[in-house]
């Protein structure tokens, strides 16, 4: 199964679907910042209160990422080897920019995810404004709200974040419809509809994530 062409494609689709699920849950969690400090700090507190479950979840997530990246790179290398001599002129008719750049957007998302963890989870890149040095909020909770606002008020951090979300948008614009095709649930009539739904979903996820730094930069969310 893990050597076959379709088997590995199914691994990409399954892990991809789980990762999209994670991205959606992450977005819903993050959007609690629009309720204010009460919202996001309470959300963070609840997450941390889960204790070992958080670690089980993290290990599962890491494995999903690992499998998706490993097979993604392996398949890309195989596919390149399948055309050792390139065309002098090649015109693509049906495919999309998102589909053609999956490996690059994928690697960009990986690089961003590492930076993102260093920033918000491990507090390495901007320790001076991390929740670990900020005073606790009025209810004695870790002040994730202030950390997010102070971080995204820095234009550079917001720009990197928004750039990463563009790569996620491109990756999902192909990935979401592709996974349904791989699961074999589409036919000639439903494929074009799913392509539209998947692109719309990718745009909604993009707008959702980017609305947070934009709202902070515009001063709509403030300390």
């Amino acid at each position: 199964m893990l050597q076959s062409s379709i088997g590995r494609k199914l691994v990409m689709a399954t892990t991809g679907m789980c990762l999209v699920g994670f991205v959606i849950v992450h977005l819903l969690g993050n959007s609690s910042i629009f309720i204010g400090a009460d919202g996001i700090n309470a959300y963070a507190e609840h997450l941390h209160a889960l204790g070992p479950i958080v670690w089980i979840f993290r290990i599962i997530l890491l494995s999903l990422f690992g499998l998706h990246i490993f097979f993604g790179i392996q398949l890309t290398l195989e596919n390149r080897a399948a055309r050792p001599i390139d065309y002098n002129q090649k015109k693509n008719i049906r495919t999309s920019f998102g589909a053609e750049t999956m490996i690059y957007t994928g690697l960009a998302i990986l690089a961003f995810a590492v930076y993102h963890l260093f920033h918000f989870t491990m507090h390495v890149t901007n320790p001076e404004i991390s929740a670990s040095v900020l005073p606790l909020d009025a209810l004695g909770r870790s002040d994730v709200f202030t950390m997010m606002v102070l971080s995204f008020q820095k234009f550079f951090i917001s720009a990197v974040y928004a750039g990463a979300m563009v790569t996620l948008l491109l990756h999902l614009s192909h990935g979401v419809q592709s996974l349904f095709q791989t699961f074999g649930v589409l036919n000639g009539n439903t494929l074009p509809i799913m392509e539209k739904i998947a692109r719309a979903a990718a745009i909604v996820i993009f707008v959702g994530f980017v609305s947070i730094p934009v709202s902070i930069l515009l001063g709509l969310i403030n300390i």
Partner: peptide, 26 residues
């Protein structure tokens, strides 16, 4: 190579074979 659902095949096929058969194969 492996299929990554670009659907360029369907666009180029002189017989108009649909990628729905790829979904069926999956």
């Amino acid at each position: 190579g492996n299929c990554t659902n670009h659907y360029e095949c369907e666009a180029a096929c002189p017989q108009g074979i649909s990628v729905k058969f790829i979904a069926k194969t999956n």
